[in-house]
Simulated assay, not measured.
Amino acid sequence: MSDVRFTHIGGPTVLIEFDGWRLLTDPTFDPPGRTYGFGWGTSSRKLTGPALPAAGLGPVDAVLLTHDHHGDNLDVAGRLLLTAATTTITTSSGARRLGGTARGLKAGQSTRLEAPGRPAIEITATPCRHGPPLSRPITGDVIGFALTWPGQMHGPLWITGDTVYHRALHRAAAAIRPGTVLLHLGGVGFPLTGPLHYTMTARQAVRLCGAISPHTILPVHYEGWQHFRQGRDGIERDLRRAPQQVRARFHWLPTGSAEHLQL
Rank of each mutant, 00 (worst) to 15 (best):
G256K: 15
L261R: 15
P50Y: 12
A84G: 02
V142D: 09
Q109R: 05
S43K: 14
G58F: 07
T83I: 00
T90W: 04
F29D: 02
K46F: 00
Q230N: 07
H170N: 00
W252V: 10
P150K: 01
L253G: 03
H70I: 01
I9A: 04
R171P: 00
G186V: 10
R232V: 01
I16K: 07
R249I: 10
C128W: 08
G99R: 02
G231S: 12
F250P: 09
T199E: 10
A205T: 09
F250I: 09
F18R: 08
Y198A: 03
E223C: 04
D162G: 04
P214I: 11
A84F: 02
L183S: 13
D238W: 05
G49F: 03
F38N: 09
L98A: 01
V206L: 13
P31S: 09
G99E: 01
Q245D: 13
L183N: 10
E114W: 02
G117M: 09
Q245M: 05
F29E: 01
L24I: 10
L82H: 00
M200R: 03
A242G: 05
T35A: 14
T91L: 11
H197Y: 11
L47A: 08
V4N: 06
A107Q: 07
V4Y: 03
G33M: 12
P12T: 11
R240I: 00
A95W: 06
R129S: 08
D238Q: 11
D233F: 05
E259F: 02
Q152I: 05
L253S: 10
L98G: 01
R5H: 08
F38P: 00
G37C: 02
R207K: 14
E236I: 00
T83G: 02
G71C: 07
L105E: 01
G108Q: 11
H221S: 11
D3W: 09
C128Q: 07
P132V: 11
H260I: 14
L157D: 04
G94I: 09
D141K: 07
P59K: 07
V181I: 15
Q262K: 08
I121N: 13
L81N: 01
G151L: 12
L157R: 04
R247Q: 10
V206R: 12
R34P: 00
W225H: 14
A202F: 00
P191G: 06
R96D: 14
I217F: 15
M153W: 05
F228M: 03
H166P: 00
Q262H: 14
E122N: 11
A54L: 13
R241N: 01
I143K: 02
